[in-house]
């Protein structure tokens, strides 16, 4: 579904991504781990062109997303993203947060979008918050709203950029639980996270990105029980 070819990204002289070639299949759940500053978030943000690669290619269903001929906005409608800091729209109610994109982009009518928003809210047990504003919610609730806001666009793949890193520990569980449900429903997911338990349980494949390259990747079992790369061994010994 998503292919990156020799992806490179530099900020000035500092090269963050040093050539990443990866392929993410439909239905796959890929978890990316790595130390901070390793380039894992940058890689994820390149996948929907929030960061513009310095060189290399990203193909979404065979289309080069950086090609001006392809409408990146149309592609982004199909590539949902969930951020570390939720980035809910503070001036809109929860329901409006969910419905604004599908309505303004002409994908759903106001009535259809409202109905869908309520369905999604019911699914996560927050339908009573429909008319509330983001500031009135807890971190875990905000992040779950952010996830269903992305879902309201019917995306084909969801990108998660450290979705639980800004949460109080007791709220991490509810967000991971929702992500697990999505995974079980067959959603294609790329998740940058420090939650090793989630990686072990949900991922089809775990990537270790360090110093701008994928240093090792494997099924979660092999990845965690039998790491090969010395940097990965060191990293796992610190975080597990």
């Amino acid at each position: 579904m998503i292919v990156s070819n020799n992806l490179r990204k530099s900020y000035g002289k500092h090269e963050v991504l040093k050539g990443i070639s990866e392929k993410i299949e439909k239905g796959e759940k890929v978890v990316i781990i790595g130390p901070s500053g390793s380039g894992k978030s940058t890689f994820l943000r390149c996948l929907n062109l929030l960061e513009i690669p310095t060189s290399g290619q990203i193909l979404f269903k065979g289309e080069d997303i950086a090609d001006p001929k392809n409408n990146i906005n149309k592609i982004r409608q199909k590539v949902g993203m969930v951020f570390q800091h939720f980035n809910l729209f503070p001036h809109l109610t929860i329901k409006e947060n969910i419905t604004i994109a599908p309505v303004k982009l002409g994908i759903l009518t106001k009535e259809e979008a409202d109905k869908k928003a309520i369905e999604l809210l019911r699914r996560i047990g927050l339908e009573d918050k429909a008319e509330a504003y983001p500031k009135q919610l807890s971190g875990g609730q905000k992040q779950r709203i952010a996830i269903i806001r992305a879902l309201a666009m019917n995306p084909e793949v969801l990108l998660f950029d450290e979705p639980t890193s800004a949460l109080d520990p007791e709220m991490v569980g509810e967000v991971l639980e929702l992500m697990k449900e999505l995974a079980e429903d067959g959603m294609t997911m790329v998740v940058v996270t420090h939650e090793m338990g989630f990686a072990r349980e949900v991922a089809n494949r775990v990537l270790f990105i360090d110093e701008g390259i994928v240093k090792e990747q494997n099924t979660p079992d092999e990845f965690f029980t039998n790491p090969q790369n010395p940097r990965l061994k060191e990293f796992l010994s610190k975080v597990l």
Binding site: L50, N73, G80
Partner: peptide
């Protein structure tokens, strides 16, 4: 306005002016 707001809007498929 936090730069994350622009990113969130763009990631939903809005173009810049929207």
């Amino acid at each position: 306005v936090d730069s994350g707001q622009m990113e969130a809007g763009r990631s939903l498929g809005f173009h810049y002016m929207q």
